[in-house]
């Protein structure tokens, strides 16, 4: 133990550039994924636990359209997102009338069904092998950005391989964040918040609450599908194990950390959680690899428990708008 602290940090920031860029990309992807959760959970009060299922749908539809149907990558993206929205609407019509806890369970089941389809409908999805042949367009785009833009600022090297993805991810994340923030400040957002608080009161005021909830879920699905596509560019492999319910749950950790109803909190929460999950790889605790990885998730679990118990509004949430606790 005595030699743990001073020697613990064994990374060198500059040599580890590719690593840190990777962490940044994942944090950006988590921001996008969790923006959808924020809209659902923080602003509409619908407990969507199937967010990773939408990411899976987005990634698979995009990847399969490009690799197996020879579609253009750029065209496949909106189609994949649109498909995820359609699935969300169908899912929502079926499940949004359920009680909150049943809806939560039903959405986890949905995301697991998506994953099992990805795993088992091998003829369509290539099973556990996953899909790989969809990155060519992105690679050439990424290479162009590196040569034309990043080279000039000394970031053209191999270690900055994912730099274009980092930039695209975070620009998209920030634009989406601002867009959703704009939307939720509107009268539309006001109705969502009313539904979160008391759906019956909103209905008594003439609001077709199902319609608003469907819109909320549909937007979350679109954002989730986009996150899935970004993840597909990061890995770059679309395989069932990238879409475990675990990742939705990590999204919830991000959400709670940043604070329900705080849009900026999503980005900050994603950065912190990714840092805890990834940066701890570089710290030598004198543990086995399995123990280190376990410890990361134990920390995430403890953070969730302690925040929900003692600071349910999260780091940035407003106490008055506390969604948790009655």
């Amino acid at each position: 133990m005595h030699e743990l602290l001073p020697l613990a940090i064994s990374f060198d920031f500059f040599n580890g550039a590719d690593f840190w860029v990777g962490v940044g990309v994942l944090a950006g992807i988590y921001t996008v994924l969790t923006l959808g959760l924020q809209l659902n959970v923080g602003f509409t009060g619908i407990q969507n636990f199937g967010q990773i299922g939408f990411a899976a749908i987005g990634a698979y539809v995009m990847a399969l359209l490009v690799s197996d149907a020879d579609w253009s990558f750029w065209l496949a993206i909106p189609v994949a997102i649109g498909f995820a929205v359609c699935v969300a609407v169908v899912l929502g019509v079926i499940t949004l009338r359920l009680r909150a806890d049943f809806f939560a369970i039903a959405t986890i089941a949905f995301s697991e069904i998506v994953r099992y389809i990805a795993q088992n409908a091998r003829g369509l999805t290539h099973g556990n092998q996953g899909v790989q042949d969809y990155v060519a367009t992105w690679r050439s785009f990424s290479r162009d950005v590196r040569h034309d833009v990043l080279d000039g600022i000394g970031m053209g090297g191999v270690e900055f391989n994912q730099m274009p993805l980092l930039i695209v991810t975070w620009i998209a994340a920030l634009l989406l964040l601002l867009l959703l923030r704009h939307l939720t400040k509107s009268p539309w957002g006001r109705v969502l918040r009313a539904i979160r608080e008391d759906e019956d009161a909103a209905r008594a005021m003439g609001k077709n609450t199902l319609r608003f909830k469907l819109q909320s879920l549909g937007i979350a699905a679109a954002v989730g599908a986009f996150a899935g596509i970004l993840l597909a560019l990061q890995t770059p492999n679309v395989a069932p194990d990238n879409y475990l319910p675990l990742y939705t749950f990590i999204g919830y950790a991000v959400l709670i950390l940043g604070g329900l109803t705080s849009w900026w909190g999503v980005a900050v929460g994603a950065l912190i959680v990714q840092f805890v999950l990834e940066a701890t790889r570089l710290i030598d605790f004198g543990l086995t690899e399995s123990q280190t990885s376990s410890m990361r998730f134990i920390i995430v679990g403890l953070v969730i428990i302690l925040l929900v118990a003692f600071r349910p509004q999260g780091v940035f949430g407003k106490r008055e708008e506390m969604v948790l606790g009655d």
Partner: peptide, 17 residues
């Protein structure tokens, strides 16, 4: 109060956007 008012175009997604 505002929530209760009818005929709000801002309550549609297009109006919010």
């Amino acid at each position: 109060m505002l929530l209760a008012a009818p005929h709000q175009r801002g309550e549609s997604l297009a109006g919010a956007l």
